[in-house]
């Protein structure tokens, strides 16, 4: 019986570890998108990356070892405005106080796009997760990172595992132009 519970718990753990739930209307954007990417990394995978990745520095390895999951969903569109603002809003609305705090909210009138960064308080002064929603005219990216992480460490993860490169500073977050 105990084994059955453990097996069930192990099976459910990855589901619980993913904070972001994309509604059906957002998932459907994959049919319109020129390219769509899904990356799912669980804690075992991240710990092993931390252990064996020779290219990562000690700080990045420590950060990776402390994470439970990384989930990235991105859509690239051929034309502008192929998704509706309401599509993005339906995802943003999942991250409400008191569990979540929005630390960054950039609304751009030009082509830079909108970026939102939400933090989940894990108690005892620690963070339990970060969600990044980056909406550009032709690109939409959702990132959910579960585990102990500092916002500034996001910059270290940027560019890896399809996580957008973000410049984190006092002025908020800016998406770095990737080459």
């Amino acid at each position: 019986m105990r084994i059955a519970i453990l097996v069930l718990a192990a099976g459910l753990a990855p589901l619980c570890a993913q904070e972001i739930k994309l509604p059906a209307n957002v998932e459907k954007l994959a049919e319109k998108a020129e390219e769509s990417v899904v990356v799912t990394l669980d804690s075992n995978m991240l710990r092993l990356f931390a252990k064996f990745d020779n290219n990562a520095d000690a700080a990045t390895k420590k950060m990776l070892a402390g994470l439970e999951s990384i989930y990235v969903r991105s859509f690239q569109f051929k034309f502008e405005d192929e998704y509706k603002p309401a599509d993005v809003e339906s995802v943003r609305s999942q991250f409400q106080a008191p569990a979540w705090s929005r630390i960054v909210g950039v609304r751009s009138k030009n082509s830079d796009g909108d970026v939102d960064v939400y933090l989940k308080d894990g108690g005892n002064g620690k963070l339990a997760g970060i969600v990044v929603i980056a909406a550009e005219r032709r690109e939409l990216t959702f990132v959910s990172i579960v585990g102990s992480i500092e916002p500034e460490q996001l910059a270290d993860l940027g560019g890896q595992f399809h996580i957008p490169s973000l410049e984190m500073g006092l002025g908020g977050a800016r998406r770095r132009e990737s080459k």
Binding site: A30, A33, E34, E35, S36, V37, V38, V39, T40, L41, D42, N44, M45, L48, F49, F52, K78
Partner: peptide, 25 residues
């Protein structure tokens, strides 16, 4: 198998799925 990455490219008409077993060295 653990699915790590799924990529769909409409332009290239290509879908790629990458899965792994237990990861070690």
């Amino acid at each position: 198998l653990k699915p790590l990455v799924r990529v769909h490219s409409r332009h290239g008409g290509e879908s790629t799925y990458i899965c792994t077993g237990e990861v070690g060295k």
